[in-house]
Simulated assay, not measured.
Amino acid sequence: MKGIQILLIMILVSLLSGCWGIKEIQHQTYITAIGIDYEDDLYQLYFQSLSYSSVAKVEGGGADTTESRIIVGSASGSTIEQALGRIEQVAQLPVSYSHINTIYVSPTILEEQQLKIVKDFLGRWPFLRYDTWLFATDSPIDKVMLHNDFFSRAPVYSFTYDPAELLRENSFIPVLSYQTLVQRYDEPFGSILIPSLIVKDQTWKDNEASELVLNVNSGYFIEQHELKGHLTLNDLKGLDWFDENTEKLHVTLPEDLISAQLIRPQLNINVLTEHNEPRFRVEMKVKAALLSNVNQINERELKNKLEERLVLDITETFLHGVEMDLDIYQLTEKAFRFHPGAWTYEQLENLDENFLDRVDIAIEIVDEGNYK
């Protein structure tokens, strides 16, 4: 009797160990990014897919032993749902959306009516995580997706899939998650920056040809549901200091042969409520590690030159925003939220160059980069 009981237990255990209905990983189409465009009254939807073997890693940082292969599927429709259905109909394998980490949109999608439709679709789509990264591009979206494999590395190791790794060493542009867009979209004050991408060549090469890579070259701005326009990366130099995630930034003064790395700025925006009109003062403390000082300029003069440069960058970026009727630094949002009685809604809406009363920068040089 005891032997029969043991046999029954063994049979039951063997049944529990089976995993019926589980699909093997190579039998699914893995979508890592989606793209949405709107033209001629039609929505164009794009899926970026990669083979599972292209994300195989070897010891030492995620390099692939075989060439990464990206496939882009696309379809159009009078609605996003219709385009989505058409792509799925021609998929050769079941589609898995669990790896989506990037959304690409064209500038036409950022217009108020189209963005409202896209937000409604993405909000109801059960597969999208809110921490997905959002980028704009005026290049063809399928071209952007196809060239997101730097030196044959899988897209899951790219800047648009995981920007944090690169921005830790050079925080050259604030990035935007879909969650942040949703949180800030209906705010009455403050702007939203969507980084914009281009496909760039002639920067990296191998033995045969130039390597096409994605590059952030500008940013589109939305404020109070309206697409205000876009500014180049050079016009946005002052914005980096207002991003709480900024860790390191490189500043170069070519005329003085000075280069420095500035680390973890501590920024404070003061709302000057004693004025009858909206006024704000920006104060920032930042540490600097000197990378180049060919002319051996003394520390005091070095600090002055770097501080002047930062003041200039911050002021110029603010004035670019004023020209577009755009509060780039979220100054009015801070007043509206924390000092609601200081000025009227109308006063805060009438943005002008006097809103930025003063910029004070204090730089501490912690490493002069001396020869060892």
Rank of each mutant, 00 (worst) to 15 (best):
I198T: 15
D256S: 05
V294Q: 13
T108R: 15
V282L: 07
N276T: 15
I328K: 01
N276D: 10
G219P: 00
D138G: 00
I198N: 14
L181W: 02
R129C: 01
S177I: 00
S106H: 13
Q48T: 02
N268I: 05
I117G: 10
Y178M: 11
A288C: 06
I103A: 04
R309Q: 15
T344R: 09
L146K: 14
N234K: 12
Y161H: 14
L7K: 13
A56I: 13
I4E: 13
N268C: 00
D313G: 09
F135Y: 15
D360F: 11
D325G: 11
Q44P: 01
L15E: 04
L50D: 09
T160P: 12
L310Q: 13
D37E: 10
L214N: 15
S98K: 10
N215W: 13
L253Q: 13
L306F: 15
H339Q: 15
L267Q: 08
N245P: 06
N101D: 07
I222M: 04
I87G: 02
K2H: 08
S74A: 11
M10Q: 06
L93D: 11
V90Q: 11
T102Y: 01
A362D: 12
K237Y: 02
G238E: 01
I328C: 00
L253S: 03
F127M: 15
A75C: 06
V213P: 05
V156N: 08
L331F: 14
T273S: 09
S51Q: 13
R279C: 00
L110R: 00
